[in-house]
Amino acid sequence: MKFAEFHAGQTIEAGPYPVDEAEIIRFAKAYDPQWFHTDPQAASKGRFNGLIASGWHTCAIAMRLATDAALHGSESFASPGIERIRWPHPVRPGDRLRLVATVTEARRSASKPDLGILEWRWQLFNQNDREVLELQATSLFDLKPG
Rank of each mutant, 00 (worst) to 15 (best):
A101G: 01
D95H: 13
G116F: 09
L115F: 12
R107C: 12
G116H: 07
W122Y: 10
L118W: 06
S111D: 05
P113G: 04
A101C: 12
R98G: 07
A101T: 03
S109M: 08
I117A: 11
T104V: 12
A106E: 03
W122K: 02
P93N: 08
L115R: 10
Q123F: 00
S109V: 07
W120F: 14
L97I: 02
L115G: 04
S111T: 15
I117T: 04
T102G: 02
A110W: 12
R98A: 10
R92P: 03
W122H: 14
E119W: 06
R92N: 03
R107V: 12
G94W: 13
R98D: 09
Q123Y: 00
I117S: 01
V103R: 02
G94E: 08
Q123P: 00
T102H: 02
R92I: 09
W120A: 10
T104L: 10
E105M: 07
R108G: 08
R92W: 13
R96N: 12
K112L: 12
T104I: 08
S109T: 12
D114S: 13
G94R: 15
Q123L: 05
P113S: 00
W120T: 01
W122A: 09
G94C: 11
T104A: 08
D114K: 11
V103M: 04
W122V: 00
L97R: 02
E119D: 13
R98N: 14
Q123V: 00
A106G: 06
E119K: 07
R96G: 00
R107A: 15
K112E: 11
D95W: 04
G116I: 05
L99K: 06
K112C: 04
W120H: 14
R96K: 13
E105L: 11
V103E: 08
D95A: 07
K112A: 08
E105C: 04
A110I: 11
A101H: 06
R92A: 04
V100W: 00
L99T: 08
D114V: 05
G116K: 06
D114C: 01
R107F: 12
T102M: 07
I117N: 07
R96E: 15
R98I: 10
L97E: 03
R96Y: 03
V100C: 11
K112V: 14
E119Y: 06
V100D: 00
I117C: 03
A110H: 14
V91S: 02
W122D: 11
E119C: 10
V100Y: 00
V91C: 09
E105Q: 15
D95S: 01
L118E: 02
P93H: 04
